[in-house]
Amino acid sequence: MFKHIEFVKSVFKLEDLPPPEFPEIAFLGRSNVGKSSLINAFLNRKKVAKVSSTPGFTKALNFFRIDFKFYLVDLPGYGFAKVPVEVKKHWQYLVEGYLKAVRDFRNLVLIFDIRRNPDEADIQLVEFVKHLKKPHCIVLNKIDTLSFREVERQASVYQKTFKPNPETPLFLISCKESKGIPQLRSHLLSCLGFKNN
């Protein structure tokens, strides 16, 4: 498991990105999908990423250096956040600029609330990531809030919409119950070229 987790910096301007000296994985989702909880569960820590009851709390690209081996990047959420239009545009500039930057990018974790059906913004996001040919995976979070049959039904909706495959797998996750976390961790470490200890 991870031993040394260090917050590096919050990036509000693309010119302030840290040097790409480590491989990187990034987490992205709507502002209320449990992104911070997922990051903390992945790292097996409680308070690395700040969990807020206010949607849109993450306003910058937050870089964490893990065991001096890779960067974990917490990207600003999209959709639903009650913020001014100019702030949303800045977030879009940050996320798109980061994904287009020349870096040792290994995987993007796209997080969705399994209770919601994917909408146009979700579809556009996935299409954008595919267009950039960025490696990514799909996480359907908060499965503990639904029955087994409901989880199956919603997972089927996302599978039909996003068509996951071995290169872009889909994970069913409950941070609260730690379901699916070991599988996601193993996948991301494999993308980084590391073994899961």
Rank of each mutant, 00 (worst) to 15 (best):
Pro23Lys: 06
Ser156Trp: 07
Trp91Ala: 09
Leu43Ile: 12
Asn165Lys: 14
Phe2Cys: 11
Arg45Tyr: 04
Ile39Gly: 15
Ala121Trp: 12
Pro164Tyr: 15
Phe80His: 05
Gly180Asn: 05
Tyr98Val: 01
Glu167Met: 14
Ser53Pro: 13
Thr54Val: 03
Val11Ile: 14
Asn165Pro: 14
Pro169Asp: 00
Ser10Tyr: 15
Glu152Tyr: 07
Leu99Gly: 04
Lys9Val: 10
Lys134Gln: 01
Leu28Ala: 01
Phe105Thr: 07
Trp91Tyr: 04
Ser186Gln: 11
Glu120Val: 08
Val85Cys: 00
Ala121Cys: 05
Glu6His: 02
Arg115Ala: 03
Pro20His: 01
Ile5Phe: 00
Leu170Phe: 13
Val83Leu: 01
Leu61Asp: 09
Glu96Val: 05
Asn196Cys: 09
Ala101Arg: 12
Thr145Leu: 12
Ser186Cys: 14
Ile25Ser: 05
Ala60Gln: 13
Leu172Gln: 05
Cys191Gly: 10
Thr58Gly: 07
Asp144Tyr: 00
Ile39Cys: 12
Pro19Arg: 04
Pro166Asp: 12
Phe70Glu: 13
Ser147Phe: 10
Tyr78Thr: 15
Glu24Arg: 01
Gly29Ile: 07
Lys133Phe: 13
Val126Asn: 04
Leu189Ser: 10
Val157Met: 12
Phe68Val: 15
Glu152Lys: 14
Phe12Gln: 11
Leu94Trp: 13
Lys130Ile: 11
Ala41Thr: 02
Asn196Ala: 15
Pro84Met: 09
Leu192Arg: 02
Ile66Lys: 03
Ala155Ser: 08
Leu94Glu: 07
Lys163Ser: 07
Ser52Val: 02
Phe2Asp: 05
